[in-house]
Simulated scan of single mutants.
Amino acid sequence: MFKALIICFLISVLVTPFVKKLAIRLGAVDQPNQRKVHTRAMPRLGGLAIYMSFLGGMILFFPNDSTIWPILIGGLIIIVTGVMDDIKELTPLWKLTGQLAAALVVAIGGVTVDFINLPFGEGQLHFGHFSIPITILWIVLVTNAINLIDGLDGLAAGVSSIALLTISGLAITMGNTFVVIIGFILLGSTLGFLVYNFYPAKIFMGDSGALFLGFMISVLSLLGFKNVTLFSFVIPMIILGVPFSDTIFAIVRRILHRKPISAPDKSHLHHSLLRLGYSHPETVLMIYTMSALFSLAAVIFTQSTLWGALFILGIVMLLIEIIVEMTGLISHNYRPLLNLVRDNRTKR
């Protein structure tokens, strides 16, 4: 298992410089503007290096396994969509079309959410004919959540690596070798790219990387927690607490400000931390820490009793609320909890 991680790490480290040169030749370069943090043109086809390393690992460790074909085909659709966007900047509709096509391939291939366990009692809620639409929705949501946090050097790659490490670690405890090996293949590929992507970055992963990592994490979370006794959407949602929260509050923020949901802005979590005075690497490391805490909560959640799990969820929700208020993710005036604490202190 660890051999997969090491081999794919080395492949990624070796391939990334060649992909950087290719990106410059193809014109896949991210130009700075008022919405972006970087101040100079940067090659942005890094996802191709992650994909090439991942593909090499899959061929090496699953040479005759037909069950991986839906994952490989879906991944190919996603990487092609991302590469085209990095070169020509596709419209949101075309990017969504690529995501839906990749998700549909995986769902038809058998990777679906068939049921969830109800929180009270021993019953299960089976989705029946809705399993494929719910699976597609899940894949698209996770894919875009990872894509939205790709705003600073090493941010999306680092957060994805923490999520992959957590999913792979939980898969080890469950005895799911298939997910462990794929998780380590992808983790090694991402860490190898992170060597060139951490601040100050030499290459961006672009949409090719963010979409591919989001897609693969969504698929791995389905494979890793499928048919587990305490299965629900809660475990992967906690693991991906940072990108999910950022996505949800971005939607809320845009609705409150009467802007289109797809409209870009400069009020994501990393933007907010930068405005508070933290440096680029400090902001990235702070979000890494948040991601690690969410992952730790997810691990504890899997080992808890029902009431213990509900307590963990309460702590996670409280942590999210505090982060939202302190960073101004919704607005600078939204601080109900912090204002309540301040008022109580004033009365004393």
Rank of each mutant, 00 (worst) to 15 (best):
M1Y: 06
F2Q: 15
K3A: 13
L5E: 01
L5H: 00
L10A: 12
K20Q: 14
K21N: 07
R25H: 13
R25M: 03
N33I: 02
R35L: 12
R35T: 09
T39R: 12
A41H: 12
L48H: 02
L48D: 10
Y51P: 02
L55T: 10
L55M: 11
G57H: 03
M58Y: 08
M58P: 06
F62C: 13
P63Q: 04
N64S: 15
W69F: 15
P70S: 08
I71E: 13
G75S: 14
L76R: 08
V80M: 10
V83E: 06
K88P: 01
K88L: 06
L90I: 01
A102C: 07
L104D: 08
V106S: 06
G110I: 06
D114V: 02
F115R: 14
F115V: 11
F120W: 13
E122W: 05
H126I: 14
F127C: 07
H129N: 09
F130A: 15
S131D: 12
I134C: 06
L141E: 10
V142L: 13
A145V: 02
I146L: 14
N147L: 04
L148P: 04
D150V: 02
G151N: 01
L155Q: 05
V159S: 09
V159T: 13
S160C: 10
S160W: 00
A163W: 00
L165V: 07
T166M: 15
T166G: 09
I167Y: 00
S168L: 06
G169T: 12
L170C: 06
T173F: 08
N176P: 05
F178E: 09
V179W: 03
I182D: 01
G183E: 01
L186I: 07
L186M: 08
L187F: 05
L187I: 01
G188F: 00
S189Y: 04
F193M: 09
V195R: 11
Y196W: 10
Y196S: 02
I203G: 00
G206V: 00
F215G: 03
L220P: 03
S221Y: 05
L222K: 10
L223S: 05
G224R: 12
T229R: 15
F233K: 14
M237D: 04
I238Y: 07
G241N: 08
S245E: 03
T247F: 02
I248G: 06
I248P: 11
A250G: 13
R253H: 10
I255M: 08
R258Q: 14
P260N: 14
I261K: 13
S262V: 12
P264R: 03
H268Y: 00
H271P: 04
L276P: 08
P281C: 15
E282M: 05
L285H: 08
L285K: 15
I287H: 13
T289G: 10
A292Q: 12
A292K: 01
L296P: 09
A297D: 04
V299S: 04
Q303Y: 04
T305N: 07
T305F: 10
L306V: 12
L306W: 09
F311W: 02
I315C: 13
L319N: 09
I320C: 06
E321R: 01
V324A: 11
M326G: 08
M326L: 14
G328F: 01
L329N: 03
L329Q: 02
L329P: 01
N333C: 07
L338S: 13
L340F: 13
V341P: 04
R345Y: 09
T346I: 06
K347G: 08
R348L: 15
R348A: 04
